[in-house]
Structures are given as structure tokens and as C-alpha cells.
Simulated assay, not measured.
Amino acid sequence: MKPIYKRIVLKLSGEALAGEKGLGIDTNTIMRIAKEVKTIQKMGVEIAIVVGGGNFWRGVSAKEMDRTTSDHMGMLGTVMNALALQDALEKLDVITRVQSAIDMKQIAEPYIRRRAIRHLEKKRIVIFAAGTGNPYFSTDTTAALRAAEIEAQVILVGKKGVDGIYDSDPKLNRLAKKFETLNYIDILNLGLKIMDSTATSLCMDNKIPLVVFGIDEPNNIIDVINGKKIGTHVKED
């Protein structure tokens, strides 16, 4: 089957990489995701990945700590996740580059837009780490920013424990309604917390569609790339 996207940004939360453990890294989960990423790469898709760090540290949750310091700690968590994912991909003989928004030359390339695009054109997978390099910005915003910069056709948002966007938390409300499609403005008006408002606005301004789906279900990434109607699709009016 021919993929419907040529270049994508895959957004993975830190929690998604923790598997059932909830914290840290689950190697089986990372390897499963890496195998799916390799499959879509072999289909000809150019793949950039943005990873969160919530399985190690959530900067916004540290109420008694300086927010800037806390956010920098969260950025380091994303670097650990990026290196773990790179290791899993390279075990599958997939050429991968980690680019960090914070300079750490010994373990990652600096983020350079033109270099990232060149890697993608050479069919290397690029993992963006350390967020935007700035405090007060989430990795959701990083995904939107990097997608705009590399001219990705879509952002695939893999969520743990939920298979799309609902009008309320399905874990707390069994009558929660799942949306099949949404507009950007709906997310902002309804206060849906699938991405923060900065990321949603950036996607809206740059007309970048989103597909929000469950990462726990095997082969969901492949199904989305093949155009299967899963999750929630977000686009402009």
C-alpha cells in the first residue's frame, strides 16, 4: 500500500516510551515503536521524531522549583529518551541522527534546519531532542515548530492510554464522546487539552494537520501512514 504522506513529524510523549511502568524507559515498548518506524521508513516516508520527557520529569509540575530550572531538567529527560530511541533504531540497522536544541556536542548534533532536512532527504531518521531549547515551551510546541521548519505534511501525535480526542477525559467519564474530525479553532474554543494552546495556534497558523491516535495499539503508526481512519484528524476549516 502506498503511504499518503511523504514527510512527517511523529510526536511521542515520554509516558508512551515508559510502557506499563509509567516511569523511566521500557525497552520492549521502545523496540516495538522502533520496528513500526522502520516499516514506514522502508515505505519511503521521511520521518522526524519529537520526544517528550514526562517519564523522567515534568517541568510544569515542580511547583516549588524555579520554572526555568525545572524546564531545563525536563529538556534533559527528552535527550535521554531520544538516545534510547536512537539506540533501538540503530539495533534495527536504521540510520538515525539526534539533534538537540541545547548544545551537547559529545552526544548529539546541534539542531540546524538545513542539516535536518538533508538527513531526511538521505532517508535518515531525525530525532529532535531538548524541546525548543527554551523554558516555558512544551514539546508539543516543539513538534509544531519543527514541522513548520522542515515543511512536514502532518504531525502524528501518539498518545498513551487514549485513542483520539474526546470532549472529556474518557478515563473519568465513560460517556465521553470521541471526535472523528476537528478544526483547530474547535480545540481552542472547547479547551481540549490534547496539545497546549501555543502548539495548536502554531499548527493553525501554518495549516499543519494533526492525527491524534493511540500509541499502545500495535501497528497504529503504520495504519495512519496508510490512510486508515483511526484516531482524530485535526485540520483547518
Score class of each variant (00 low, 15 high):
Ile47Gln: 03
Ile49Ala: 04
Val50Thr: 07
Val51Ser: 01
Val51Leu: 03
Gly52Asp: 11
Arg58Trp: 13
Gly59Lys: 02
Gly59Arg: 00
Ser61Trp: 00
Ser61Lys: 10
Ala62Lys: 10
Ala62Asn: 03
Arg67Lys: 15
Arg67Gly: 13
Thr68Cys: 12
Thr68Asn: 14
Thr68Met: 08
Ser70Asp: 10
Asp71Met: 07
Asp71Lys: 08
Asp71Glu: 08
His72Thr: 11
Met73Arg: 01
Gly74Asp: 04
Gly74Ile: 05
Leu76Tyr: 02
Leu76Val: 01
Gly77Leu: 00
Thr78Cys: 05
Thr78Phe: 04
Thr78Lys: 00
Val79Pro: 05
Val79Ile: 12
Met80Val: 08
Asn81His: 03
Leu83Gly: 01
Ala84Pro: 00
Leu85Arg: 07
Ala88Gly: 10
Ile95Gln: 06
Thr96Tyr: 08
Thr96Trp: 07
Val98Tyr: 06
Gln99Lys: 06
Lys105Cys: 03
Lys105Asn: 11
Glu109Trp: 02
Pro110Thr: 07
Ile112Gly: 14
Ile112Thr: 15
Arg113Gly: 11
Arg113Met: 12
Arg113Asn: 06
Arg114Asp: 13
Arg118Met: 10
Arg118His: 12
His119Cys: 13
Leu120Tyr: 07
Glu121Pro: 09
Lys122Ala: 15
Lys122Trp: 09
Lys122Arg: 15
Lys123Gly: 02
Lys123His: 13
Arg124Ala: 12
Arg124Lys: 15
Arg124Val: 09
Val126Pro: 05
Val126Cys: 01
Ile127Tyr: 03
Ala130Gly: 00
Thr132Gly: 06
Thr132Ser: 13
Gly133Ser: 12
Pro135Gln: 13
Pro135Asn: 11
Tyr136Val: 06
Tyr136Ala: 07
Ser138Tyr: 02
Thr139Gln: 10
Thr139Pro: 05
Thr139Met: 11
Ala144Lys: 10
Ala144Pro: 04
Leu145Glu: 05
Arg146Asn: 08
Arg146Glu: 10
Ala147Gln: 12
Ala148Ile: 07
Glu149His: 09
Ala152Thr: 04
Gln153Arg: 09
Val154Cys: 12
Val154Tyr: 02
Ile155Gly: 01
Ile155Gln: 03
Leu156Pro: 14
Val157Lys: 14
Gly158Val: 00
Asp163Val: 08
Gly164Tyr: 01
Ile165Met: 05
Asp167Glu: 12
Asp167Lys: 10
Ser168Ile: 06
Lys171Trp: 02
Asn173Ser: 03
Asn173His: 04
Arg174Cys: 08
Leu175Ala: 08
Ala176Thr: 02
Ala176Ile: 13
Lys177Gly: 15
Lys177Gln: 15
Phe179Glu: 00
Phe179Arg: 00
Glu180Met: 01
Leu182Arg: 07
Leu182Glu: 09
Leu182Asn: 11
Ile185Ala: 04
Ile187Glu: 07
Ile187Gln: 14
Asn189Pro: 07
